[in-house]
Design a protein around this nucleic acid. Sequence first.
DNA 1: ACGAAGATTGGCT
DNA 2: GCCAATCTTCGTC
Length: 210
Amino acid sequence: MQVTEDKIPLSRQRLPRYLQGDDVVTAAQKLLGQYLVTEFNGKITAGRIVETEAYRAPEDKASHAYNYRRTARTEVMFGPSGNAYVYLCYGIHHLFNIICGPPGTPHAVLIRAIEPTHGLKTMMDRRKMTKLKPQLTAGPGVLSRALGITKELSGVPLFNKESMIWIGKGERTSFQIHSSPRVGIDYAGEWVDKPWRFRIKGNPYTSPAK
DNA sequence: ACGAAGATTGGCT
DNA sequence: GCCAATCTTCGTC
């Protein structure tokens, strides 16, 4: 598998308007094709976002912030849009979200998969992999591990000049978006069926279908 | 080669 | 007690 590095711009950007409005479903689609980038100890790792899910609290039962539920964990979702929300799943996996919506509205977009583009060797070291395979970053838990993202980063701004993590502007390329129901939320009643999972059609780095 | 099944931990109600 | 993603192991083709 060949991946071309370095040609792709990873430049930081200012907080886009679509993250501040109340349409988190559109925001989840607009984030496809952009780059999720981290830099720790001078090591840059990045990948193109190829799969997302929208979470629309307070109405959305599948969200941790359903019905404005505030806990130590969810508190950052009530903070500024454009910040990170990172939580622990199964006590092991750190799942990365981008906070969206008008002030006080706890919308979020979960990043479910990226296509690795920069720092492949560093990512494979972190994942203890010797051969490049899609499972390097195809899945919300493994992508965080590859990029070095942990819940310590929950609440940090993604659109300022200094963060160790940011959203790099993607080049304008055309692709088809495939939408389907979200996964792992069987308890969420009527919200189970909303087609709020978005993926770049045909991309091999999207997480396994269910 | 591929799929199903089982084991695993922390945050919440 | 309920919720969740991934790795490993063990079938079957």
